[in-house]
Amino acid sequence: MTALSDRTAGFGLAAALAALADLALVLLKQTHPAVLAWLARSFGHHWIGHGVLIVGLYAGAGLSLTRAGLGRRVSPTLLFRLLLTAMAVSGGGIALFFALFD
């Protein structure tokens, strides 16, 4: 089995995590007006806050998971499946949520 570098594994897992967090934050914002208001108040606009949190999570989790040294524990196939599943669940969930509950 090909071993991934720690950075490839760390940032790949972080991308999957941030993708799922994108969906979670959408659901939280849309169902809890207080969260939407907090984001708007703290960042000037809720969308800016959303972006800062998602990109910040990707960068922060990527660096932390890289330091955790997961390269030999995560196979390319597992990372492929995790990343694609997270992206599909997140994108599909966002589209479904707004299509059904607008």
Partner: peptide, 16 residues
């Protein structure tokens, strides 16, 4: 909101 997924996939490619 899906544009963040676009960004994440694009940001990961240089690392990969």
């Amino acid at each position: 909101h899906v544009v963040f997924l676009f960004l994440l996939a694009a940001l990961y490619l240089p690392v990969l």
